[in-house]
Design a protein around this nucleic acid. Sequence first.
DNA 1: ATATTTATCGAAAACGTTTTCGAAATAACC
DNA 2: GGTTATTTCGAAAACGTTTTCGATAAATAT
Lengths: 341, 341
Amino acid sequence: MKDITLKQIADTLGISITTVSKALKNYPDVSPKTKNAVLELAKSLQYTPNSFAVNLRTKESKTIGLIIPEVVHHFFSNVINGIIEEAEKSGYLVIILQSNESLELEKKQVELLINKRVDGIIMSLSNESNDDEHIKEIIKREIPFVLFDKISKFINCSKVIIDDQKAAYNAVEHLISKGCKKIAHIRGPVNPQNAIDRFLGYKKALEKHNIPFDYKLVYTCKNVTFEEGKEFAKQIVKNHPDIDGIFVITDLVAVGVLAFFNEQNILVPNQIKIIGFSNWFMSQVITPKLSTVDQPSYEMGVQSFNLLLEEINQKKISLDFIPKTIELETSIIERESTSER
Amino acid sequence: MKDITLKQIADTLGISITTVSKALKNYPDVSPKTKNAVLELAKSLQYTPNSFAVNLRTKESKTIGLIIPEVVHHFFSNVINGIIEEAEKSGYLVIILQSNESLELEKKQVELLINKRVDGIIMSLSNESNDDEHIKEIIKREIPFVLFDKISKFINCSKVIIDDQKAAYNAVEHLISKGCKKIAHIRGPVNPQNAIDRFLGYKKALEKHNIPFDYKLVYTCKNVTFEEGKEFAKQIVKNHPDIDGIFVITDLVAVGVLAFFNEQNILVPNQIKIIGFSNWFMSQVITPKLSTVDQPSYEMGVQSFNLLLEEINQKKISLDFIPKTIELETSIIERESTSER
DNA sequence: ATATTTATCGAAAACGTTTTCGAAATAACC
DNA sequence: GGTTATTTCGAAAACGTTTTCGATAAATAT
């Protein structure tokens, strides 16, 4: 059961490898008769070109790499979905690697992909990551490169993002419009840009509506987990029993907050209103249903791939490619956790 | 910014490509002096072998393919996680493709991976899939192949599974031990083996405890969604108000059931007890906390890859490989939804 | 008729590596 | 001294494709 090669087709047909190759690729300089003969034989033999040889010859593998903090995550798994499906439309396959939010591991994964010689890399930075050496290496080697969601402002490359600051601003303003006077913020880790921006949006909304900012009302997640949500909720009611609204960095943590309030029979939205971020599927399933900011995760995947593809194709022609940034729209989804009463 | 090749190292050192290659691969027939020179230069030039050329020459790509019904799924995303991490330990990368529960798409994905000449394929069958042509093609081509979770009994290949029938039996017996007398089953689609086995386990447990089996108490999911869970819960209370226990094919659907009961103020576990399957993270977060069957998803990924690796290595030596089946343990996780009252 | 265009083909180089096998040089032996 | 082992190296083939470019034959034009 050996693989069929051009040579075998050429030999059985008594023609050259060149002609066979040309026939299969529809070159104009092969007669209809021989072309048909080749096509027929190739089909009956189930010939498929040896991709290893094609890769070597064409210097591309029709494979891209994707590095994300974690696969088991409602947001990222939806992005994966978008990337995989969009890539397949253009004949690209996707290799997925995780950084587990570790800079060290992220570096290793980048190295793996570079050595693998993927045609491009899509990435969302780990919490520890900024414009480090491994990223510079990607840029230096002129490997098509797109960042999404968790980006760094200092990296000059194509990006797919949302306006985290504006989205957060809107979320907090939503709380205010529902009558909240004292609003806490459970924010993401200190480093990632999106956590910073959401925090800034929170602060800005307070200022805008003349609510004094109090850094004691800001709680900072380390691992962004359900458990952290529960823990911070506990601290919030203990330290600031008069708080009537919380803006939470992401739905998973917000669900933790809700879980604690449910246990303690603290009424949401009556006593405290909660708004999350990212519109996780589960947030409309729990009680009370969680208000949130919709972040188009699947669409982010689609756009990220298309941006990468553009760069791949552009760089085949000329190396001077101007990075582009696509900003996707978000929207407030109002549910029970912020209803008026 | 051209890639470094063996030839360049050879030329600058005034030696042959052969010797450079040997030095890098630690062949015994190269003197310590030249070896060091090569190693040093290679390092300073950041040489990495061109994987396209290596693939062509060695006929392997250190890449495997993974086909699953869907990425955005608590069970499968955990399996992905296990496979990716385990594969990386052995220097393998993973290409992920989805079948979206469609046989047609699954066939296409298999074809893509075969043409890509991956070193092996790990797969969980779509609901529509049995022992079809595309699977036979994998076997015929002697591509290392592992099925996990959603398998077919008629395919002779390595497998990683759980004993669905036994697990379901235990789940239903758990309900009975908690006092349930009339137990409904929301089952998976008709075709998949695991849905069949779980149904059989349900039936067996009833028989064993002298509870008459009534096919009217079996509800069959089409899409296995949250919404279906809600809908079936509605039907159940309407058609059989005296039911006091439900065994649900998977946690997501069971959460739907709980959501409906919450809305209707039907008390769980007091009026009806519920047990799910697969131990989704969310099931311990909702109210009431869902009892379930723990299915080791991450471990399934790890074992699947290791089985595949075994087959890959074995087939390098000799083509007659005897498929192996690994059966992983499950356990009942008792939470609020089946507590005594 | 010859000159020129057009249609059809194939030789050969190239992509970068791995590995076999033989050659050369050196060391060891009697 | 010559013979045999040992060490160290490199030529060359092979993996299977793509593409350039030149060659031949046929068709058209002059």
